[in-house]
Amino acid sequence: MVSFLTLLALAFGLSVDAFAAALGKGAGARHTTFTGALRIGFVFGGMEAAMPLIGFVIGLALAGLVANVDHWIAFVLLGGVGLHMIWEAFTGRHDDVEELAEETANGPIRGPRWIHLSLAALATSIDATVVGVSLAMMDANIWLACLIILVVTTTLCTIGVLIGRHAGRWLGHWAEVAGGVVLIAIGGYILLDHLSKGI
């Protein structure tokens, strides 16, 4: 069973992509209110928390077939996602996501702005589907994992919107690097833990 601290670290690792987009939104909004920031944070958090469920179901379907190498699969998937996040941070591939987030303004989110924000949230949470597969291999409590991801992502994205105009995009890039490193480290820890036990 995966520990609470591991799930918490995983949630932070996953949420930084959305955090970077939230910073972009904050950088493009001069008068963001706390309520508006919280709404945006919740959209990102809800999407980030929902996607691992899809991956978890896929992982359960495959669990019986890959029981002997599940730790290797978790290592490869988490390491791959982590490296992809670092690559995106240095190549600027997530700038389109930030631009989508910036197009949402304060006040009720509806119509095209709602669609744009949802697309930004979806784009930053796709990696979480892959991580959901890893969670199934790790015998994790998926409901607890999703709850932690929801709370962490919502909180970080709300903060990101509020400080984005001051921090700018520079912090977003390095946050993505840090998140990628965390996911790679978790994957490495899982692999080493299993190997040390002779599993």
Rank of each mutant, 00 (worst) to 15 (best):
F75W: 03
V43E: 13
C157N: 14
L38C: 09
F12K: 03
G160L: 00
F56G: 05
I148G: 15
W87P: 10
L191N: 10
D95Y: 00
W87H: 12
C157I: 08
L78T: 01
A49I: 03
L192N: 15
L7R: 00
I184C: 12
I73M: 02
V2A: 01
W174C: 00
V81A: 03
R110Y: 12
L10I: 01
P52K: 01
I159D: 14
M138I: 05
L147S: 11
G80L: 10
L8R: 05
E88A: 14
L83E: 12
F75E: 04
A29E: 14
A21Y: 15
D17S: 06
G198W: 07
G168M: 13
L117C: 02
A120Q: 09
G164R: 04
N68A: 01
I190A: 06
A123C: 08
G188K: 13
G24T: 07
L83M: 13
G80V: 10
L38P: 10
L147T: 02
H71R: 13
T154I: 05
E103V: 09
I58H: 05
H31G: 01
G24Q: 08
R169M: 12
F75T: 01
L117A: 02
L156I: 11
V43G: 11
G187K: 14
V130L: 04
V2G: 02
R169F: 11
T35E: 06
F34M: 05
A63M: 00
F12L: 06
L171E: 11
I149T: 15
N68C: 04
V177P: 07
K25D: 00
F34L: 09
V97S: 07
L65Q: 09
T32H: 06
S15H: 13
T91V: 09
R113G: 11
D17Q: 01
L5E: 03
A11R: 14
W114V: 04
L77N: 00
M1P: 06
L83Q: 10
A89P: 12
G80E: 05
F12I: 10
L23F: 07
A74Y: 02
M51D: 04
M47L: 14
P108A: 12
V76W: 04
I159M: 12
